[in-house]
Design a protein around this nucleic acid. Structure first.
Lengths: 152, 152
DNA sequence: GAATTATGTCAACATTGCTGACCTAATGGC
DNA sequence: GCCATTAGGTCAGCAATGTTGACATAATTC
């Protein structure tokens, strides 16, 4: 089981490497990729929600987010209900780039799963799910739009 | 399958997070962890071999390696056959720390695999293996001691 | 109207990666 | 023995991405 440590390291290294080559052409790094990815997958995400997913500070986020906005890959709109809670959306350009990045990464999954037969996908999925910390606030759950209500 | 992208991200994030908390107490970062890990697993590793595994430059490596040596977690000895090719070994202290780091990381694997039944380990292993780029020079293979002979 | 909340921003710093240039010591070819 | 090559170390400077701390602003709530 010890060997899984380095297999995980090598697998993740090669996995992110796929996207790196693409990002270079846009002058973006991995941090931009992560932001664009989650904004594209969860349209209308607020800043606070994104910070919780990425587990970084607002100052770190702001630097890369500003670049994505300046280059018109991400759009910030005032929140619908609460105008303070800005909501993030990928622009058409942003959506296209997110798509291209997803393609190279899912291709690696597809090639890997091809070698593993029918049980490859479900067992990979349950393995990865089991490796993730149980979510206290379920803020990593997909498709969430409602702000996390605090005790009141 | 798209979902695997973020599952992989979250799983790796939590996986390295385990070790991060431990490393802080020693004033080490992830870079130190990676070096210590491979030195401990492949005693007698040379600098060039380590550089190839980590895919970083010697300048980057040297910074963290020097700290590990200064704090007596890693030892450098002149190569047995070729005194230029220095060989790396974990000291008893280094071995102990590597062990503690491995414990927290294998615990996560153990807890995850517990939920997955008998097929958990073999399917996780083959999934991760399939995600790794095929090795051109097999320099990532475990247990190598012989220097890579060049054409001669 | 005042306190709270969500976010932005400036400044300074740490870690970990990079390139380029140059140095030393050991080896190997001749 | 001499010289080119090889393995590695080191210095300087820079980039990306993370951190803290302090303070500003606008919207919301009480």
């Amino acid at each position: 089981m010890y060997e899984l440590i380095e297999l995980f390291f090598f697998a993740y290294r090669d996995f992110v490497g796929d996207a790196d080559r693409l990002l270079e052409a846009y002058g973006f790094g991995r941090a931009h990729h992560r932001v664009l990815y989650f904004v594209s997958r969860r349209p209308g995400l607020t800043i606070a929600e994104l910070l919780e997913i990425l587990r970084i500070t607002k100052q770190s986020l702001n630097r890369v987010l500003r670049e994505l906005v300046d280059k018109s890959f991400v759009e910030i709109r005032a929140g619908a209900l609460d105008r303070r809670r800005r909501q993030l959306y990928a622009t058409p350009d942003g959506e296209r780039l997110a798509q291209r990045l997803a393609v190279v990464q899912t291709r690696r999954f597809a090639l890997a799963l091809e070698q593993l037969g029918d049980w490859g996908l479900p067992s990979a999925r349950s393995f990865l799910e089991a490796m993730i910390d149980p979510q206290k606030a379920s803020s990593d759950a997909a498709g969430r739009t409602e702000p996390a209500k605090r005790a009141s």
